[in-house]
Amino acid sequence: MTAADVHDAGPEVSRRLLESSATLSYDPASEIDWNAPLPDGAYGLNPEWSTLYGTPLWDEMSERQRVALTRHEVCSIMSTGIWFEMILQQMILRDQYVKDPANPEFQFALTEIADECRHSIMFARTCEKLGVPAYFPRRHVVELARLFKSTASAEVAYGGTLVAEEVLDVMQRDWMRGENVLDIVRTSSKIHVVEESRHMKFARHEIREHMAGVSPTRRYTSGALIAVVAYFIVNSLVNEGVYHAVGLDTRRAVAEVAANEHRKSMMRNACAGLMEFLGESGLLPRPAVALYQRVHMI
């Protein structure tokens, strides 16, 4: 497909996404039963997605601790999701600033921002319902993100967005089907998966459009920058504070997570489609591959 073909397809892609949004969207305020009690034995996420699953420490934990840990882990992931969705909204607004409001791309971009606002509120209410405090990335990551959200544009902005959305999408597709997972998490995951599928299509199209006909140097630089963003996002998903919160030795827990081959395999499988797309787009230079390997995305 030529650069002109990619550009010409833009309005049609956005128009289809707008039609999908009009026919299949959810209101978390009414779709989720916020007053329903939380069953004592239900997990926050599928045990297989726990960072400690498959480790000696997991085997030593009581069932109560395992349930509590998964609830703190899912809320840590949701808190990180809120943090990045706020970054995403600012980048999209900058990208669409003074663009033609009659263009379907402009209209879908604002639709995506509205979706992200609802998702963030949904995640916030879920964590509140579970009684889990907010978990935030480390201070240096928060400050670096201030720079990123204020300067990132084009394929780097949409690439960072796609990384966050794709990783969470694979996890939540399992959570929404988990029979031993809390209903509130299953329903919020379903809502997010359905609506984020449109966001990912939009991000992929924007990346293709921005990358059409660019120089090898730009591909190399953009690919490396997207990998840096991915590195910090993945490292921020589960805050180390979750282990202390459920009475575990944090130092031991962190060490076992770092050596957890099951966890590494789950991450590689979750990122397979994303890595394939980045490779096809010419956004996997050697420095990027090295960073993805460090966080087990490849």
Score class of each variant (00 low, 15 high):
5 D>Q: 15
7 H>P: 00
18 L>Q: 15
21 S>H: 14
22 A>M: 15
25 S>D: 04
25 S>F: 11
27 D>R: 13
32 I>N: 10
34 W>H: 12
46 N>E: 13
51 T>P: 00
63 E>D: 08
66 R>S: 02
66 R>N: 08
67 V>W: 05
69 L>Y: 07
75 C>M: 07
77 I>W: 06
87 I>G: 02
87 I>W: 02
88 L>Q: 05
92 I>L: 06
97 Y>S: 02
98 V>F: 11
100 D>R: 13
102 A>L: 14
102 A>V: 01
103 N>K: 06
104 P>H: 11
113 I>N: 05
126 T>W: 09
126 T>D: 04
128 E>P: 02
132 V>A: 08
134 A>E: 14
135 Y>G: 03
141 V>Y: 10
144 L>W: 11
146 R>Q: 06
149 K>P: 00
150 S>H: 12
155 E>F: 03
155 E>S: 13
158 Y>H: 07
159 G>P: 03
163 V>S: 05
164 A>P: 00
169 D>I: 04
174 D>W: 10
180 N>M: 13
181 V>S: 13
182 L>W: 11
182 L>F: 12
184 I>L: 09
185 V>M: 14
187 T>R: 14
187 T>Y: 12
187 T>P: 06
189 S>T: 12
191 I>V: 10
192 H>A: 07
192 H>R: 15
195 E>D: 05
203 A>D: 01
203 A>T: 00
205 H>L: 02
208 R>F: 00
217 T>W: 14
222 S>D: 10
224 A>G: 01
233 I>Q: 08
236 S>G: 00
250 T>L: 01
253 A>W: 01
254 V>F: 01
255 A>R: 08
258 A>E: 15
259 A>L: 12
263 R>H: 08
267 M>E: 06
272 A>V: 09
273 G>V: 02
273 G>N: 14
273 G>L: 12
279 G>V: 02
282 G>A: 10
288 A>Y: 06
288 A>V: 02
293 Q>L: 03
293 Q>R: 13
